[in-house]
């Protein structure tokens, strides 16, 4: 067994020598903290015993070693449990809507830009602008855009004749049932240019002759889009999808800065998972439960990525 591992290493020892610093770095920066995270999730590490660090006692006997995990999900009175169900539902809706809307807009934008001839570089660069704005700045900006009386959104809707003269009847985006959309729309605004970029790269790699040949065979625009463009863009699309799922499930800066000038209280319709984990872990110093929630989220993310890989494996192998 050891020989089987050792032999190729000896065979390519120069290459492994070059790889060694990177491997050590990965172990140090990624693997060890992950192991530590799992370890902390079984500890009763909280504000009152902060000084003990990793020597904090294991979770209480009554609840068993899984006490932190169980309390998060089952104890309605547990502070960590507060709003967790809302946050899970909100995060799922947020992630799916933002990811698929960004894909749709990115694809449409890429197809449009490709028809811009020699100006396409300019348009692509221009449309990329929202993506280079840091997420927390996007949160701050949109926190102003959404204001009921003075925000650019309601005032634009008013200018278009959609909203009436009485400002008190204008919708409130940052309070109440519209909050969900107040988080989703800025996220789409920021993320769709990234999808546009990857789809543009994908379109440029499609040999032009394929479309011409299909046209000669009588294929119309929709048939060419459905049976040529989409399959050829699938590898790029799969990467956009993966990025969207991971990035949006872990969304933090935007929702945090959008509400209450950084207080991050999105209410029942606007609170997402990462802000809730942050509040409980670092504002209350409940490390044990914070680590448990993070482990569950990480495992969930592994499952999402595994599912993604299973669905897109054949497309990815085509790239190779």
């Amino acid at each position: 067994m050891i020989g089987r591992i050792w032999r190729p290493i000896r065979q390519h020892r120069v290459a492994w020598g070059f790889l060694l610093p990177a491997i050590l770095g990965m172990v140090l920066v990624h693997f060890l903290p992950l192991v530590q995270l799992v370890g902390i999730s079984f500890l009763d590490s909280r504000r009152t015993n902060l000084g003990l660090g990793l020597s904090a006692p294991a979770v209480g006997e009554g609840a068993g070693i899984l006490g932190n995990y169980l309390s998060i999900f089952s104890e309605a009175s547990d502070p960590f449990h507060l709003g967790l169900v809302d946050a899970v539902v909100n995060t799922a809706i947020f992630t799916l809507v933002v990811t698929f809307a960004s894909i749709a807009l990115g694809l449409a934008g890429a197809l449009l830009v490709e028809r811009m001839g020699r100006w396409r570089g300019f348009w692509r660069a221009l449309l990329m602008t929202p993506w280079i704005v840091p997420a927390y700045v996007v949160g701050l900006i949109w926190g102003v855009f959404w204001q009921q009386d003075s925000g650019v959104v309601n005032n634009s809707l008013h200018a278009l004749g959609i909203l009436g003269e009485d400002r008190s009847t204008w919708p409130m985006w940052l309070s109440g049932s519209l909050t969900r959309w107040a988080v989703i729309l800025p996220a789409i605004w920021r993320e769709w240019p990234y999808a546009l970029l990857l789809f543009s790269l994908g379109l440029q790699s499609v040999p032009p002759g394929i479309h011409e040949a299909a046209q000669l065979d009588g294929a119309g625009p929709w048939t060419r889009f459905r049976f040529l463009t989409v399959p050829l863009l699938m590898p790029a699309g799969s990467l956009v999808l993966l990025h969207g799922l991971v990035y949006n499930i872990y969304s933090f800066n935007l929702p945090l800065m959008l509400f209450g000038a950084g207080s991050g209280n999105g209410g029942r319709q606007g609170d997402l998972l990462m802000p809730i984990i942050f509040r409980n872990t670092f504002q209350r110093w409940d490390f044990g439960r914070g680590a448990a929630a993070t482990v569950v989220l990480t495992v969930g993310m592994f499952l999402v990525v595994a599912l993604w890989y299973r669905v897109f494996r054949s497309d990815l192998e085509r790239i190779r």
Partner: peptide, 27 residues
């Protein structure tokens, strides 16, 4: 010592929800 927990996690959340209600929110 637990006032911070009460204020940060419980009060700010529920009083935020109450303002949502006052704003004509979902609840």
């Amino acid at each position: 010592p637990y006032w911070g927990d009460i204020e940060t996690v419980i009060l700010n959340k529920h009083f935020g929800n109450i303002l949502d209600i006052a704003a004509g929110g979902p609840q």
